[in-house]
Design a protein around this nucleic acid. Sequence first.
DNA 1: CATCATTTGTTCGTATGTATC
DNA 2: CGATACATACGAACAAATGAT
Lengths: 89, 89
Amino acid sequence: MAEREIDHGSPTPVYRQIAALIIADIENGTLAVNRSVPSELALTQRFGVARATVRNAVRFLREEGYAYTVPHRGTYVKDRTSGTESGTD
Amino acid sequence: MAEREIDHGSPTPVYRQIAALIIADIENGTLAVNRSVPSELALTQRFGVARATVRNAVRFLREEGYAYTVPHRGTYVKDRTSGTESGTD
DNA sequence: CATCATTTGTTCGTATGTATC
DNA sequence: CGATACATACGAACAAATGAT
């Protein structure tokens, strides 16, 4: 999982930087499909940011189709390889 | 609850327009006493404005005696019928 | 079935930076 | 310059669902 390379001085919002790092891990397979994506708490500790910022990043991941969230369970990497909309299993 | 009739071109500040719409709902009973007043998030979505603007509107409602806010709980319609300042119940 | 830890959901409080009028 | 408005970010508190024990 990506280290902490957050630049608070960058014009790029922190939540976008975090999202980009997670997406990179998804792209290179560090984060497997239907698994992972650390919890919000884990991400706040990993990147040293507020939970609201982490949630913003995760929301972005969902909007971009990289992940899906199961309420009170966690957020998982979405399978973007299958052409058919079967998703679940 | 009021639709979205915000006019960004109007000389009347957006936060005042929103406050007026909420007040109208209080006046006509759409928003019951000691209940409602949508959350800040709900209001930002409903009117398509920034949270800061919504908070400005809610602050105005408080100042005008139309509502009271319980930290981390929500904002409620104040009972303006009772003459005595009992507020609670 | 009850309890507990984990995790996301929700809500308000506060601050900063930028832009516009 | 001040009021207004948007976007971002951190802080704090509590609610609710889930799963393990």
